[in-house]
Every structure is written in structure tokens, then in C-alpha cells.
């Protein structure tokens, strides 16, 4: 029983990080049909920023990380994506792919390809005892931060003017523009939000692993993609639940698979993803973007 609860807490905390990652991908897909490979590198650069500022007071380092990543996201929008915004989604996809490769290798050039270890707030690794259940503080923090951020973004999208504009743009970008919504501004805000989400994912991920390597973001971006697809492309709620499902499935497989099959865990996770796609090609929460309209 204790083992089950510990595994569940683990699953939810991994799922929470994945959900944040998926929401970042889902936001940009919703507003501009962009599948953003470079989000992985937004996260990686966040991790490196954190590594460079690790000597500072932690809240300051965190704020700096968010600042750097948001700036990076806005620059990416302005320099790489704005010129291809009117091209077909496949061209944008490839642009983001190239940008991802560029940023990843700039990191290789500056820091080398090997992982670099660093430690932010070692006390987070200590467990909290609730009765006989040991829960690492980091897991609790992860779940709380993710829940807070998701609530904040939900409120932002429902209650603020720009949030409502963003949802309108996600339903029909052209119509929204005709009604006077500024397309550039909506997209810039979507990129900024993606930046915030990536930075938070970077901080949580760095706290968990304590290392930085140029390829870390890729894994998270891949999870984000599959999460948005199984959630239903274009549905933000779907993206969050998709991320949560991928995280929970990953941790449960880790716990349930016999040891000799455990090395194949990722393959099983992605096989589950493909199975969901076969059964529900439009995703679990069918989004507005999933079917082409005539």
C-alpha cells in the first residue's frame, strides 16, 4: 500500500512536469498551428541559465531563468517564425526543427556535449514523512508549482482580455483578426507564455536531475508532442491531460515491468501512445484543430 502511494505521488509529479511541457507545445499549436521542436531547447537553455546562476540567491536565479527563456522565445518568434508564419504548417515545423538543432549545437559549442553537474537547493531531496510514507519534498513542490501555474494560466485564458483573444485566435485565427484582434500581439503573448512554462519545466527538471546537457530538452519536447496528439491537437485541456497520462504511464511501467523489460520502458510508453492514436485518431479530447475544415 505504502509502495503504491509512493509510486502514485511519483507518477503525478512526473506527469505534472510533462503536462507543463505539453501545455507549452499545445498553446503555440492552438494559436498558430506551429509544432515547436525548439521548445526543447528553450528548456535546455533554461537549465544552463540556472547552472550559471546557481551561486546566486535561488529566487533571483529562478527569475533570471524565466527572463532569459521568455526573451529567447520572443526572439525566436520575431526572427525565425514570423517570416514563415503564412507558409504551410509543414514549413513552420521544419523551421522549428532547424532552430532546435541550431540552439542545441550552440550549447555544444559553448559548454561541450558532456553533462555538467550542479546542485540547486540540496534540501529539496530530503523526504517528508507522512505516517510511514516517504515523499521527497521536490515531488510535493513540483506538484504544487504545476497546479499553481496551470490554474494561473487557466484564469489568464478565461478572465483577461488578451487571454480571451488568444482563445478566439485558437478557434479561428483569420476570423479573430478580422474582428480586430492583433495577431502579432496574440502570438507574442503565446510565445511568452511558452517561455514561462519552459523556464519552470527547466527549474523543476534541473532540481530533479542536478545536471545540464545539450540534449535534455529534446526528450521533454518529444513527450510534449505525443501528449498534445493523444490529448487532441488544439485542445489545451487535452494537452495537460495528455502530459499527465504520459507521465503516469511512464512511472507505472517503471514500477510494474519485470526488471529485464524495464530498459524497454520508453518503447512501451510510445507504443501505448500509438495504441491510443489507433483507437482515437483525433485524440482523447477532440480539439478544434484536429479536423481540416473545408
Amino acid at each position: 500500500m505504502i509502495y503504491v502511494i509512493q509510486t502514485l505521488v511519483d507518477a503525478v509529479s512526473v506527469g505534472a512536469v510533462y503536462a507543463l511541457s505539453a501545455l507549452g507545445i499545445g498553446l503555440l499549436f492552438g494559436v498558430m498551428r506551429l509544432v515547436n521542436f525548439a521548445q526543447g531547447e528553450f528548456v535546455t537553455i533554461g537549465i544552463y541559465t540556472l547552472m550559471l546562476t546557481v551561486g546566486l540567491w535561488f529566487p533571483l536565479a529562478a527569475i533570471l531563468t524565466v527572463f532569459v527563456v521568455v526573451l529567447l522565445a520572443l526572439l525566436a518568434d520575431r526572427l525565425a517564425f514570423k517570416p514563415v508564419r503564412d507558409a504551410d504548417p509543414a514549413t513552420m515545423l521544419i523551421t522549428s526543427f532547424a532552430l532546435s538543432y541550431l540552439l542545441q549545437n550552440v550549447l555544444v559549442l559553448i559548454f561541450g556535449a558532456r553533462p555538467i553537474g550542479f546542485n540547486i537547493i540540496p534540501e529539496l531531496g530530503l523526504p517528508v514523512m507522512i505516517g510511514e510514507i516517504r515523499i521527497p519534498r521536490l515531488n510535493i513542490l513540483t506538484i504544487c508549482v504545476a497546479a499553481g501555474l496551470l490554474t494561473g494560466i487557466a484564469l489568464f485564458l478565461r478572465r483577461t482580455r488578451i487571454g480571451i483573444e488568444m482563445r478566439a485566435a485558437a478557434v479561428d485565427f483569420r476570423m479573430a483578426r478580422l474582428l480586430g484582434i492583433k495577431g502579432d500581439r496574440v502570438i507574442a503573448v503565446a510565445f511568452a507564455l511558452t517561455g514561462v512554462l519552459s523556464a519552470v519545466v527547466a527549474i523543476l527538471f534541473a532540481a530533479q536531475t542536478g545536471t545540464a546537457a545539450p540534449t535534455y530538452g529534446l526528450q521533454l519536447a518529444l513527450v510534449g508532442f505525443v501528449a498534445t496528439v493523444i490529448g487532441g491537437m488544439g485542445s489545451l485541456v487535452g494537452a495537460v491531460f495528455g502530459g499527465m497520462i504520459v507521465g503516469v504511464v511512464t512511472v507505472c511501467l517503471q514500477a510494474l515491468l519485470p526488471p529485464e523489460l524495464r530498459v524497454f520502458r520508453e518503447a512501451f510508453v510510445y507504443a501505448v501512445v500509438i495504441a491510443i492514436l489507433v483507437l482515437r485518431p483525433d485524440g482523447l479530447f477532440q480539439g478544434v484543430g484536429s479536423r481540416e475544415r473545408v
Partner: peptide
């Protein structure tokens, strides 16, 4: 799957 969904499924396939 539709176009973009298919692209992403191929990513999952490569990972498998």
C-alpha cells in the same frame, strides 16, 4: 492520422 498528427506519430515510432 492527419498530417501533423502523422508527423508526430513518426517521432514516437523512431523513439520506439
Amino acid at each position: 492520422l492527419s498530417g501533423l498528427g502523422a508527423s508526430i506519430a513518426t517521432v514516437a515510432w523512431l523513439a520506439i
